[in-house]
């Protein structure tokens, strides 16, 4: 029997306060109208107004979105292929190296990944810009996608694929008609993860990009290295708001689906 004690309640309260207080303060102070960033000077949305005027930020945001959209989509395709190879590929030459290359980027310090990609791009004389950031982000996020998708594939009942073959599917159409629809939630989750990782990345983008492309995290970083900036607070608030709405919506949708499924299953047993 589990007991929820006062100690538990206290540690939950303190723990979540620690997790959420800094973000909450940041959000509150983004509406600070005063001159001094640390002193409350009345409610105002002026920093949001200035942010919208700031073309450099808007450009960086646009670059970031483009990079994230392309890199996460390519990473999802490559990562799903890699997951399929890992789980269903059987034995082939260099399998150990392959799985090593899938897992290594997950634990590789970003500075090393970034440095090595930069040296590659310079070594082969590849101009750095949006394209190199996309290549760099695709490479590390495909590994995350492949981990997410392969954990779903491992628990996938293989006889479903065999049944599709048995009923006349070619291997390719079995994947398209049976495997893909069933693992779709994991593939979508992988895409979302890749997209967020790309939006979030500072270090690798910093190495992989050239003067022609600046992403939003790079812009934020150079602004906040110097100190607290009310404009950045406003920008952060917008980003946090988008993520919060997105995550809560996603979890409500999946919770509703789970409840419906449970109800269906109970009804099935009853009849």
């Amino acid at each position: 029997m589990r007991r929820f004690t006062w100690f538990n309640a206290t540690s939950l309260t303190l723990g979540f306060a620690f997790l959420y207080l800094p973000i909450t303060l940041l959000v509150i102070y983004s509406f600070n109208g005063g001159r001094n960033v640390a002193v409350w000077g009345g409610f105002s949305t002026k920093w949001y107004g200035e942010l919208v005027q700031n073309e450099a930020f808007l450009d960086a945001a646009w670059v970031t979105l483009k990079v994230a959209a392309f890199s996460s989509t390519i990473a999802t395709v490559l990562g799903t292929m890699a997951a399929y190879v890992l789980v269903r590929g059987g034995r082939f030459h260099g399998r150990t190296l392959f799985s090593g290359m899938i897992y290594a980027p997950l634990v590789m310090p970003e500075v090393i990944t970034g440095l090595s990609l930069l040296l590659l791009f310079i070594g082969i004389g590849f101009d750095r810009g949006i394209l190199t950031i996309i290549l760099a982000h695709t490479t590390f996020s495909m590994c995350y996608v492949s981990v997410v998708v392969s954990s779903r594939l491992v628990s996938f009942d293989r006889s479903l694929e065999e049944a599709a073959l048995d009923l006349g599917c070619s291997p390719l159409s079995a994947f398209r008609l049976v495997t893909l629809p069933i693992i779709a939630p994991a593939v979508i989750a992988g895409w979302l993860l890749a997209f967020t990782l790309s939006l979030d990345d500072l270090v690798i983008a910093n190495f992989a990009s050239g003067p022609s492309a600046t992403t939003l995290p790079m812009k934020i970083w150079s602004a906040v290295r110097l100190g607290v900036s009310p404009e950045i607070n406003a920008l952060s608030t917008i980003l946090i708001g988008i993520v919060t709405v997105g995550v809560i919506t996603a979890s409500l949708v999946s919770k509703r689906a789970a409840v419906k499924r449970q109800r269906d299953e109970q009804a099935a047993v009853a009849n």
Binding site: D157, A163, A164, L165, S170, I182
Partner: peptide, 28 residues
């Protein structure tokens, strides 16, 4: 297997969870 005149009923049934009963039967 997809070119054989044999069909199999699997131990786990291997029904496609994303398809209705009708679509499962019509699949082949």
């Amino acid at each position: 297997p997809n070119k054989r005149a044999t069909n199999m009923m699997f131990q786990s049934y291997a029904l496609f969870p994303h398809l209705s009963v009708f679509d499962n039967v019509a699949f082949g």
